[in-house]
């Protein structure tokens, strides 16, 4: 009986720990994408992406406003929002996933940690399961997350008419950087 009470308490403890598990977040994550073709190179950056991850479970989430991507040319930005991403209909791109080997990361020790991340990436209202590599660089307590993703435009039902097909790459490179801060409720 006593044993069981202890069991219960310890389970309770573990759960309450995981409930309050440490989290890190940023509101100023950077997402850049590059479309390179012989005709035209297009790049855009969003400096206001939001991300949070849970040290215990490895759960990680990202969210970025499509309208916050800024382009070199104003017209590109207008077409990106109006014609391709339809940002008034689909205002955000989101990622929800898990860092599978979060247990390998020692947040108290400086170093570079290779991560395996899997989850669901939602762009233009279409969700696709993806798996990708990422890195945590830990230096004097600061955590920087970095990842490069390649996204096929067609996978997300983004319609590119044939007249501009040679100006927009079929696969777009996406670079993600986040300097995480400790999350305090």
């Amino acid at each position: 009986m006593k044993q069981q009470i202890i069991n219960t308490l310890s389970i309770l403890c573990i759960f309450s720990m995981s409930l309050n598990a440490q989290k890190y977040f940023t509101k100023e994550g950077t997402i850049s994408f590059y479309s390179e073709t012989p005709v035209e190179n297009i790049e855009a950056t969003n400096y206001k992406a939001v991300s949070i991850f849970d040290v215990e479970s490895g759960a990680i989430e990202w969210s970025a406003l499509i309208k916050a991507f800024s382009f070199e040319k104003a017209l590109m930005q207008e077409h990106f929002n109006e014609n391709y991403m339809e940002s008034s209909k689909y205002p955000k791109a989101k990622f929800k996933g898990v860092i599978q080997n979060i247990a390998d990361v020692d947040f108290t020790k400086d170093g570079t940690y290779a991560l395996k991340v899997s989850g669901s990436l939602e762009i233009h209202g279409v969700s696709q399961n993806i798996e990708n590599e990422a890195t945590f660089v830990i230096f004097e307590g600061a955590i920087r997350g970095v990842s490069n993703i390649q996204v096929k435009v067609r996978d997300y039902d983004i319609d590119i008419p044939s007249v501009v097909a040679d100006k927009i790459a079929e696969t777009v490179d996406i670079k993600i950087t986040a300097d995480y801060q400790e999350f305090k409720k």
Binding site: I11, L12, F15, S18, L19, K23, F25, K27, V50, I52, F53, D54, S57, A59, I60, E61, S63, K94, F183, K185
Partner: peptide
Amino acid sequence: LSFHSVLAQEDLLSLIDE
């Protein structure tokens, strides 16, 4: 409790006030 903790992980982004 486990359901609870799953729920807590379901919506991490909602913790951040945008």
